[in-house]
Each structure stands twice: as C-alpha cells, then as structure tokens.
Design a protein around this nucleic acid. Sequence first.
DNA 1: GTGTCTAAAGCACACACACG
DNA 2: CGTGTGTGTGCTTTAGACAC
Length: 356
Amino acid sequence: MKKTDLNKDRATLTDFLKTWPLERIEKMSLDEYVNVKDPETFCQYVETKTRPLGSIKGLNSIKFGIYKRGDKKKRPKNAVSDDSHSWLSYFGEKKNVAFESIKSELIKIIESAQRLDLEKIDDIHLHSIFKWKIAFLYSNEGFIPIFKKDALHLIAENLGLAISKNTKYSEIHRFIAKTKPIGISVYDYMRKLYSEYRIEQESDKKDKQVNSTKRKARKATGQRNTSSQNRKGTREYVAEQFHNELQEKLEKFLSDKYGVDNVVLEENYIDVKLTLKNEIRYYEVKTAGFAEDCIRQGLGQLLSYVHYENDKRKKKLIVFGKNKPNDQEVDFIGFIKSQFNKVDFEYLSLTEIENE
DNA sequence: GTGTCTAAAGCACACACACG
DNA sequence: CGTGTGTGTGCTTTAGACAC
C-alpha cells in the first residue's frame, strides 16, 4: 500500500494540540470558539485546518452547537437565534448558558478521548461527526479517523461487524481499529478504507443509473516517508495525565501482586521497575491506542534501560498500554519475542489486568 | 416511547460566461 | 488564452415534526 507523508499528518496534529490544549479550551471565549471569517477559531481548526486528518466538511455550522451567522437577518428555524448567533435549543435558551454547556461537553469529549474511553463520547449531545473528530484529535491517534455515518457503517459491515441502527459509534470505532494492519498509520488506513468505500458508492450509483458525476478517487499525495516517528511535543499536551493514570493503575496492580516494596516508580526514567528474587522487570507505560504504537515508542527506551543496568539478574521488558493487541499485533509481539534470547519481552494491557 | 420523514443549511465542485 | 465571477447542483446530518 502506498504511504502518504506521515510527518505532515503528525505535524498537523501537533500544531492543533499545541494551539488548543485543554487548559485553553477551559478559558475559551465564544469568539475564540466560533466566528465569521476567522480561520483561527477552534471550530475552524477542527473542521478545516485538520481536514487531512479526517474530513467533517459538508454540514452547516449548526454542527458546532452554536455559530455566528454571516447573515445577521437570517433566523434558522432549527435553532434559537439572537442578533448575531444561532444555537441548538438543547443547550439552553440563553446564549451564554448554551455556550458554557457546549464547552463543558467539549471538555468531556477531550478528557474521555485522552483516556480512550470512547463509550462516554456516545452520550455527548453534539453532532456526531464533530464530536468524533474532536475525540480523534485528542485520542493520541487511538482510532481510525472516519466520521461519516454511512461510511462507518458500510466499512464496519464489510469488515464483519453486524450493524444495526442502534450500534454505537464507540463500538464501530473499536471494531475498525482492531482491523488496522501493522505498520500503517491510522491516516493511511483511513484513506484506504475510504477509497474502498467510495468505489462501492460509485458502483451503487451506477446500478441506480443516476447521473454519473465522476468523482476522482482521493489521490495519495506526498512522497514516501516511513522513517521518522517524530511526535515531539505531542505527549506533553495530550497524554501526560493519562500516562500518570495508567502508571498508577499498573503500580497498584504490581504492588498488590508482588508487594509494594518491590515496585519502584520513575527510577532513572524507568516508568515502573519491579524487582523480584531472580528477575527484574521494566515497564514502559505508553498512551497510544494501538499496541503497535506503544511498542514502537517504548521498546527502544526499554532496551536502553537494560543496557545501563548493572544488576546481573534476568531482565524482562514490558510495554504497558491501554488496549489489548489485535491479531496482527499479537503476531508482531510474537515476532519480537522470538528475536530476543537474553531478555524476555512482553506486552501487557490495562484491559487484561483489569480482567484478572 | 419509538419510528419515519422532511426541511434546513452552507460548502465544494463543475461549468458557463464575460472580460482584458 | 488565462483569469475572475456567477450560478446550479450535489453533498452532508439531524432537529423537529408528525405518526403510530
């Protein structure tokens, strides 16, 4: 499969996260959130500036919950309006009340997405394409950025998920994420799935013999670049809290199991170190949604810890992430394990320790 | 309470046309 | 011929209305 420029996608994401950290959103004014002809607003960032990371174009601005009208005289019928703005009545009859309640929804989305608690996002009242785009942006690339309902349904169905109209978005996203092959970015996988979806749409159209507007398949832009995994700066903005949370859960799990005296945090930058009678285990905590990403980011660090360790006991390296590995990732883990003979390698997930 | 339908809105894109 | 402007059509999802 053709790979597009991952650095470019990552730079777009990092730029977004630097511009819109959670702390800024908590203090954000209505004009910073949405305005007319201002490309720097939060909504413009989510809709337009980060478009390559999954498009949510198409619907009118009411998807933002509240928006400033270009035409002051128009009063959309599906919303409450004052002289300048229109908003969904669900969020409140008064503009300021509505905006504050939208803002608290945004914060809920972001906090849930950072922890990859996708189920909580199902209950948010904002339009689905908008809320899931935001969720993706703050999820540390934790699922595949496809937002259109039709596309999600069709793609998930083709991949083998039984879909009904009550199927939750969270379920679909988790399912599609499980099918992502090793070694391809969430963006490339999104583009692959989307182009297959479009081809299917095309043939559907021809069947119905409607006017065949020729739609160009999405062109893969940019040149091949697979080398760099540069995500400098992203973690501190997105994932620090979640990292701490995972670390604490792991610490508790290990302390309960092996005794609190044997578990040490943050010694020489090692997230968690467990000392046993005949073995030392190094845990590197990673917040990525995909086990593959966790391993790629963590393995090098783990190896360097072992390198600097003087203790002669047997070493075990463990990458710790949130989600269980999918089938392809299990293969990948098996491959890595087979490459080591002096150290023992493992991947462990929160899902697994919570079920133990 | 649940299901179905429709009106609504603005943006993207393609095309036609005018202009210099 | 290249560029700018205007128009028409299609695209999208869901709030709200209505039916059951």
